[in-house]
Measured scan of single mutants.
Amino acid sequence: MDSLVVLVLCLSCLLLLSLWRQSSGRGKLPPGPTPLPVIGNILQIGIKDISKSLTNLSKVYGPVFTLYFGLKPIVVLHGYEAVKEALIDLGEEFSGRGIFPLAERANRGFGIVFSNGKKWKEIRRFSLMTLRNFGMGKRSIEDRVQEEARCLVEELRKTKASPCDPTFILGCAPCNVICSIIFHKRFDYKDQQFLNLMEKLNENIKILSSPWIQICNNFSPIIDYFPGTHNKLLKNVAFMKSYILEKVKEHQESMDMNNPQDFIDCFLMKMEKEKHNQPSEFTIESLENTAVDLFGAGTETTSTTLRYALLLLLKHPEVTAKVQEEIERVIGRNRSPCMQDRSHMPYTDAVVHEVQRYIDLLPTSLPHAVTCDIKFRNYLIPKGTTILISLTSVLHDNKEFPNPEMFDPHHFLDEGGNFKKSKYFMPFSAGKRICVGEALAGMELFLFLTSILQNFNLKSLVDPKNLDTTPVVNGFASVPPFYQLCFIPV
């Protein structure tokens, strides 16, 4: 009986604490739906499609509103004006990374994606500088992407125009580009180590996009005490870190300090320079996690976009025909596509942009946080508050993009057929937390897609009208449904 009384008292205290925290903070924060004790607004949000729920709530509470995930307040920004004001106009104040408990377990605050403060700034600055020195957006990395595009075309030829699921092959190409940047090595598509790495990356994007992960991140005790797919994700990350550590040891034994070959060499050189400046942010643990982040951000996002792009091109054969006509006119058949071609191919450029806009790969991006107490639109948001960005509300804005739910390359073309930029184009987020590999991803999408369409016609196994382009999961990332196609050599 005594234990029951204690339990009831504990629960009562928890409920009172929950109510007090919510009521004391709500006077400062933007308005929002009334949260339930302990669980907050979790029942009012469709976990399978958070973005749709945010759109519905914005119609009631406006472009800036507050939700509670458990006891934790989260300020939501919906629509271009609110997102721009926060991420661009007040970029420094909104540059923090929001709480992501599962990532905390995986990387302990290291790396480039989930770190904060001085650690994040130094690692991000170093990573950007190193990638630029190796030619991100310049010639040397373009050579690597072109080489991988040629290998991709050869792998597709091996399908002999038979029906195939493109998931694996389209994942190999961007993964190999990242391998060449980090390890100075590309792998054969049949290499077992490479296959294991690909498998872990593919599993992780599916797990991260599941409703279960949303629950884990908002009720963090689940991570330590409950079984579930989150444990598989943590094991996959541990596998990748151990693999990278092996490569780091190989580099330490063979590195030429006067001739760095890749990202690992550059990081080890930085560690050597910083060894007298303790404590340094440049450690082996930081290198492991930064490399894992580059793999995660640079492989599955690009391969998922490529997979979605081919599905949309199957669905819209008239678009595919126009792209192939432009390829034939500008590039021809006797040389590989290059980035200089893009400025002469406005329709193809528009298609690449429209694919990214339409699929809305990361509907709410990753959570941000404010780095200080900030007054925002007459609300006071306390330091450390998590900020949720609705990228969907920007990419699918119906004023900027008429009929935003329709796939239409003319969203990025003017009346004369010239490519038209849009400030609403934010597939990689915006501001200080914009994806480090934005330029690389854009290069890969253009070169891989043009190389495929230069060499193959795409054949659907069903009537294009019957192809479903609805994402199968739409949590962290929008993942396309399973499909097969035939690559018919031109």
Score class of each variant (00 low, 15 high):
residue 51 S to I: 08
residue 84 K to Q: 10
residue 201 L to G: 04
residue 375 K to L: 07
residue 182 I to V: 07
residue 163 P to I: 05
residue 175 C to S: 04
residue 81 E to P: 10
residue 29 L to N: 03
residue 33 P to F: 02
residue 308 Y to C: 04
residue 461 L to F: 07
residue 445 L to I: 13
residue 468 D to A: 10
residue 8 V to T: 10
residue 272 E to P: 07
residue 111 G to T: 03
residue 221 P to M: 12
residue 186 R to G: 01
residue 33 P to N: 02
residue 293 D to R: 00
residue 90 L to M: 14
residue 276 H to N: 14
residue 451 S to I: 07
residue 104 E to Y: 15
residue 371 T to P: 10
residue 103 A to C: 15
residue 415 E to V: 09
residue 385 T to K: 03
residue 127 S to V: 12
residue 149 A to F: 01
residue 414 D to A: 04
residue 255 M to S: 11
residue 186 R to L: 01
residue 230 H to K: 14
residue 118 K to S: 15
residue 286 S to I: 09
residue 288 E to A: 15
residue 365 S to G: 10
residue 140 S to F: 12
residue 455 N to S: 13
residue 39 I to V: 14
residue 159 T to G: 04
residue 159 T to F: 08
residue 391 L to P: 02
residue 141 I to C: 05
residue 81 E to K: 10
residue 110 F to P: 06
residue 148 E to G: 01
residue 103 A to E: 15
residue 244 I to P: 00
residue 379 Y to T: 06
residue 242 S to Q: 14
residue 339 M to T: 07
residue 432 K to V: 06
residue 456 F to T: 01
residue 452 I to M: 04
residue 484 Q to F: 02
residue 319 V to N: 05
residue 236 N to H: 02
residue 37 P to N: 04
residue 244 I to G: 02
residue 83 V to R: 01
residue 351 V to T: 15
residue 138 K to H: 10
residue 412 F to T: 01
residue 300 E to D: 03
residue 360 D to V: 09
residue 335 R to E: 06
residue 363 P to V: 02
residue 100 F to T: 15
residue 68 Y to C: 03
residue 7 L to G: 12
residue 340 Q to T: 12
residue 129 M to W: 12
residue 443 M to I: 14
residue 11 L to R: 03
residue 250 E to F: 05
residue 151 C to Q: 09
residue 301 T to Q: 00
residue 163 P to C: 05
residue 139 R to C: 11
residue 436 V to N: 06
residue 466 N to H: 13
residue 301 T to M: 01
residue 235 K to H: 10
residue 369 A to G: 07
residue 448 F to D: 00
residue 427 P to C: 08
residue 97 R to V: 03
residue 42 I to M: 14
residue 385 T to E: 04
residue 341 D to L: 05
residue 53 S to N: 14
residue 219 F to S: 08
residue 393 S to L: 00
residue 183 F to V: 02
residue 355 V to T: 10
residue 454 Q to I: 02
residue 183 F to Q: 04
residue 371 T to D: 15
residue 459 K to S: 08
residue 311 L to V: 04
residue 41 N to G: 04
residue 204 N to D: 02
residue 429 S to Y: 02
residue 422 S to P: 08
residue 301 T to V: 04
residue 108 R to N: 15
residue 83 V to G: 04
residue 209 S to V: 07
residue 348 T to Y: 02
residue 209 S to H: 11
residue 255 M to G: 10
residue 485 L to I: 14
residue 364 T to C: 11
residue 11 L to N: 04
residue 344 H to F: 11
residue 67 L to S: 02
residue 449 L to P: 00
residue 283 T to N: 11
residue 69 F to T: 06
residue 40 G to L: 03
residue 213 I to W: 15
residue 398 N to A: 14
residue 375 K to R: 14
residue 214 Q to Y: 13
residue 71 L to S: 14
residue 161 A to P: 02
residue 147 E to F: 04
residue 469 T to D: 08
residue 80 Y to R: 13
residue 462 V to T: 11
residue 36 L to W: 14
residue 334 N to F: 08
residue 25 G to L: 11
residue 47 I to L: 14
residue 146 Q to D: 03
residue 240 M to H: 02
residue 434 I to Q: 15
residue 346 P to Y: 04
residue 165 D to F: 00
residue 260 P to F: 04
residue 277 N to R: 11
residue 415 E to Y: 07
residue 133 N to A: 09
residue 402 P to Q: 11
residue 363 P to I: 01
residue 471 P to V: 04
residue 437 G to I: 02
residue 470 T to I: 06
residue 138 K to E: 12
residue 459 K to H: 10
residue 300 E to Q: 12
residue 356 Q to A: 09
residue 144 R to E: 05
residue 485 L to M: 11
residue 274 E to A: 09
residue 59 K to D: 10
residue 362 L to D: 01
residue 137 G to N: 15
residue 67 L to T: 05
residue 336 S to A: 14
residue 326 E to A: 01
residue 457 N to P: 00
residue 371 T to H: 08
residue 191 D to V: 01
residue 328 E to D: 11
residue 277 N to S: 12
residue 266 C to H: 14
residue 87 L to T: 11
residue 363 P to N: 04
residue 409 P to R: 00
residue 352 V to W: 02
residue 317 P to C: 05
residue 112 I to Q: 08
residue 109 G to A: 07
residue 487 F to V: 00
residue 479 V to S: 14
residue 422 S to T: 12
residue 350 A to M: 01
residue 399 K to Q: 12
residue 466 N to R: 11
residue 343 S to I: 12
residue 175 C to V: 10
residue 190 K to F: 06
residue 120 W to P: 08
residue 169 I to C: 02
residue 55 T to L: 13
residue 470 T to K: 12
residue 442 G to S: 14
residue 233 L to Y: 05
residue 376 F to N: 04
residue 140 S to V: 09
residue 224 D to L: 07
residue 215 I to T: 07
residue 477 A to K: 13
residue 288 E to Y: 11
residue 65 F to D: 00
residue 222 I to F: 14
residue 389 I to Y: 09
residue 476 F to A: 15
residue 10 C to R: 06
residue 94 F to E: 03
residue 131 L to D: 03
residue 356 Q to K: 04
residue 263 F to A: 05
residue 436 V to G: 10
residue 394 V to G: 05
residue 78 H to M: 13
residue 104 E to N: 14
residue 474 N to C: 08
residue 182 I to Q: 00
residue 118 K to A: 14
residue 171 G to S: 14
residue 83 V to T: 09
residue 415 E to F: 05
residue 150 R to I: 08
residue 202 N to M: 11
residue 168 F to Q: 10
residue 426 M to C: 10
residue 281 E to D: 08
residue 371 T to N: 13
residue 270 K to L: 07
residue 201 L to V: 10
residue 296 G to A: 14
residue 287 L to H: 00
residue 270 K to V: 09
residue 138 K to R: 13
residue 170 L to Q: 01
residue 23 S to R: 14
residue 169 I to S: 01
residue 120 W to E: 07
residue 303 S to W: 04
residue 288 E to G: 13
residue 177 V to R: 00
residue 335 R to P: 03
residue 162 S to A: 15
residue 470 T to R: 13
residue 330 V to P: 00
residue 260 P to E: 08
residue 264 I to C: 05
residue 354 E to Y: 01
residue 489 P to E: 04
residue 110 F to Q: 12
residue 24 S to T: 14
residue 451 S to G: 08
residue 372 C to V: 10
residue 132 R to M: 07
residue 36 L to I: 13
residue 50 I to Y: 12
residue 134 F to T: 13
residue 169 I to N: 02
residue 149 A to Y: 01
residue 398 N to Y: 11
residue 329 R to V: 11
residue 348 T to N: 03
residue 315 K to P: 02
residue 42 I to P: 05
residue 289 N to S: 13
residue 40 G to P: 03
residue 380 L to S: 11
residue 149 A to I: 01
residue 163 P to F: 05
residue 239 F to R: 08
residue 62 G to M: 01
residue 125 R to K: 15
residue 397 D to V: 03
residue 73 P to T: 04
residue 61 Y to C: 03
residue 473 V to E: 13
residue 386 T to D: 11
residue 266 C to T: 08
residue 164 C to K: 03
residue 304 T to A: 07
residue 406 M to Y: 10
residue 196 N to P: 04
residue 391 L to G: 05
residue 142 E to Y: 03
residue 361 L to S: 03
residue 3 S to P: 12
residue 24 S to K: 14
residue 425 F to S: 10
residue 482 F to W: 09
residue 53 S to G: 12
residue 84 K to C: 10
residue 8 V to G: 14
residue 49 D to G: 12
residue 311 L to M: 05
residue 110 F to T: 10
residue 65 F to I: 04
residue 68 Y to G: 03
residue 329 R to T: 10
residue 169 I to T: 03
residue 311 L to C: 04
residue 255 M to C: 13
residue 191 D to R: 01
residue 355 V to R: 00
residue 222 I to P: 09
residue 196 N to Y: 07
residue 209 S to E: 06
residue 122 E to I: 07
residue 236 N to K: 00
residue 55 T to R: 13
residue 85 E to R: 04
residue 452 I to T: 01
residue 119 K to V: 06
residue 365 S to Q: 06
residue 91 G to T: 15
residue 189 Y to W: 04
residue 115 S to R: 04
residue 44 Q to W: 08
residue 216 C to T: 15
residue 232 K to I: 07
residue 462 V to R: 06
residue 393 S to D: 05
residue 208 L to F: 14
residue 226 F to D: 03
residue 391 L to E: 07
residue 100 F to D: 15
residue 273 K to R: 13
residue 458 L to A: 01
residue 26 R to I: 11
residue 205 I to P: 02
residue 456 F to C: 01
residue 462 V to G: 08
residue 127 S to G: 08
residue 239 F to L: 08
residue 165 D to W: 01
residue 6 V to S: 12
residue 482 F to L: 12
residue 23 S to I: 14
residue 338 C to G: 09
residue 29 L to I: 05
residue 164 C to F: 08
residue 390 S to D: 10
residue 227 P to Y: 10
residue 160 K to T: 02
residue 189 Y to I: 01
residue 221 P to N: 12
residue 459 K to V: 10
residue 475 G to F: 09
residue 348 T to P: 00
residue 367 P to I: 08
residue 402 P to I: 12
residue 104 E to R: 10
residue 464 P to W: 05
residue 435 C to M: 01
residue 206 K to H: 07
residue 17 L to N: 12
residue 442 G to H: 15
residue 298 G to N: 04
residue 205 I to N: 04
residue 287 L to Y: 02
residue 394 V to S: 08
residue 316 H to F: 13
residue 6 V to W: 13
residue 170 L to S: 02
residue 34 T to S: 12
residue 167 T to P: 00
residue 366 L to C: 05
residue 435 C to P: 00
residue 39 I to H: 02
residue 49 D to T: 06
residue 59 K to I: 09
residue 485 L to F: 01
residue 335 R to V: 06
residue 99 I to M: 15
residue 194 F to T: 01
residue 35 P to Q: 05
residue 141 I to G: 01
residue 105 R to S: 12
residue 239 F to S: 12
residue 47 I to P: 14
residue 171 G to Y: 06
residue 487 F to C: 01
residue 121 K to G: 10
residue 454 Q to R: 04
residue 411 H to L: 01
residue 330 V to K: 11
residue 214 Q to E: 10
residue 471 P to N: 04
residue 128 L to A: 15
residue 445 L to N: 12
residue 252 Q to S: 08
residue 35 P to A: 10
residue 142 E to N: 02
residue 137 G to I: 09
residue 168 F to V: 06
residue 291 A to V: 15
residue 379 Y to E: 03
residue 50 I to F: 13
residue 362 L to P: 00
residue 386 T to F: 07
residue 482 F to Y: 14
residue 90 L to V: 13
residue 431 G to D: 02
residue 329 R to M: 12
residue 420 K to I: 10
residue 112 I to Y: 07
residue 120 W to F: 07
residue 340 Q to R: 15
residue 206 K to W: 04
residue 66 T to I: 03
residue 56 N to T: 13
residue 454 Q to F: 03
residue 69 F to P: 08
residue 115 S to W: 02
residue 108 R to S: 12
